[in-house]
């Protein structure tokens, strides 16, 4: 299972904090499964992605069993 976590306004818009999906394949396709506009927003740098707690820009990387993907907006702490 791949765990997908959502943060900030993305979690609010989706109405959930986390999904668990039985999936193996490119990260790009996983993002499309989550929502049509997620992958577009990542390309336009409105939304960012982490794989196993590290920011990632290469959406062609494969993800699968036990991976944790996080989808989040730009940071605004402080």
């Amino acid at each position: 299972m791949v765990t997908i976590r959502y943060y900030g306004w993305i979690a609010e818009r989706l109405g959930r904090r986390q999904d668990e999906i039985n999936y193996t394949g490119p990260l790009r396709d996983l993002l499309r499964l989550v929502g049509e506009d997620i992958e577009l927003n990542v390309r336009e740098r409105k939304v960012f992605v982490a794989l196993n707690h590290n920011s990632i820009k290469d959406l062609d990387v494969d993800v699968g069993e036990d991976d944790i993907v996080a989808i989040f907006p730009a940071f605004s702490g402080g």
């Binding site: 943060y7 609010e12 605004s76």
Partner: peptide, 26 residues
């Protein structure tokens, strides 16, 4: 302080007294 604002995975939401709210953009 500058690095924390840029690099820490934290998101701020403001609730206003008029009932509105917004997620703060960096």
């Amino acid at each position: 302080v500058d690095e924390v604002k840029k690099e820490a995975a934290i998101w701020k939401k403001e609730y206003f007294k008029d009932g509105e709210y917004r997620w703060v953009e960096p």
